[in-house]
Design a protein around this nucleic acid. Structure first.
Lengths: 146, 146
DNA sequence: CCAATATCAGTAATCATTCCTATTATTAGT
DNA sequence: ACTAATAATAGGAATGATTACTGATATTGG
């Protein structure tokens, strides 16, 4: 599911990779599109999206905010973390309470004022683990769930 | 920025809140819409979205995956966390390395197999802190940045 | 050199979410 | 209660990000 067959380095892919590696920021696809177009005015936005996904699948770059883009809501207000199943997208609650010492651990590693954090555990839910031991080829059904 | 004036509890708001609190899952807006429609067939999806935002602003429910929805990319593959400025959306890297003991801390708190995690620190970046001490009313410009 | 395959540009389609508007409900003041 | 002012709603249109499609162009293997 990660490093694939060695990727054919076309001009477009090389330039996209170069432009992303050139910046210290964490640009969105259309920001990258804007930059790349300065060097390749005819490139299409679709190529940028396709290439970024490809490079990320190769492990050559990283997507951040890897969680699904659909917003979810939680009727429980008491602070607690979640764990998400990477196979079926199901989200479960963890017991209430914060990871002790977490924010303190980072306070002297950044020039930001730290005021909070988001933490999500990733894993395999009992149902998907069971499917797997039974040899069901579940593939990767995207986060539809529930 | 959190608890506001006491909310007028209309029928729609009450039913949306009830339906969300009734489930242990973490539904998307349209899942809630489907459920609520069983009791109020004429409710509109817009009302569901508006109400969920409202309830979250009151602190009566929680939005999860609170990060901005636009996908961002990172040219650095070495594992590292990010910190996001809540005011301007800017994302900065933290030094490479994982929070020690984090996944181990949760292994016995869930029936999922834990295989990873995402952690994002939240805070105020130096530029926004400076704006604030200078009394500039920056409001909350959404994650446009860079 | 040619056929099979991959990649691309350009554009249309999709999906979640937000915005808009006319209508309906609620509140406050008399 | 009656009415004007205000708030909330339904329904649908608009937006913005992302993905899918299509015909053209490039690349590779034989």
């Amino acid at each position: 599911m990660s490093a694939q067959s060695p990727l054919h380095m076309t001009e477009q892919r090389r330039v996209i990779l170069e432009e992303l590696r050139k910046v210290r920021s964490h640009p969105t696809a259309d920001k990258i599109y804007t930059r790349v177009r300065r060097r390749m005015p005819r490139i299409s936005l679709g190529t940028v999206y396709r290439t970024l996904d490809l490079l990320a699948a190769q492990g050559m770059i990283r997507k951040i905010e890897s969680a699904g883009t659909r917003r979810r809501f939680d009727g429980t207000v008491e602070p607690h973390y979640h764990i998400r199943c990477l196979e079926c997208g199901r989200i479960a609650d963890l017991p209430p309470g914060e990871m002790p010492g977490l924010e303190a651990h980072f306070r002297n590693q950044t020039d930001y004022d730290v005021v909070g954090h988001t933490l999500e555990l990733l894993g395999t839910c009992p149902a998907c683990r069971k499917d797997r031991t039974e040899g069901k080829d579940v593939g990767v059904r995207p986060a539809s769930e529930q």
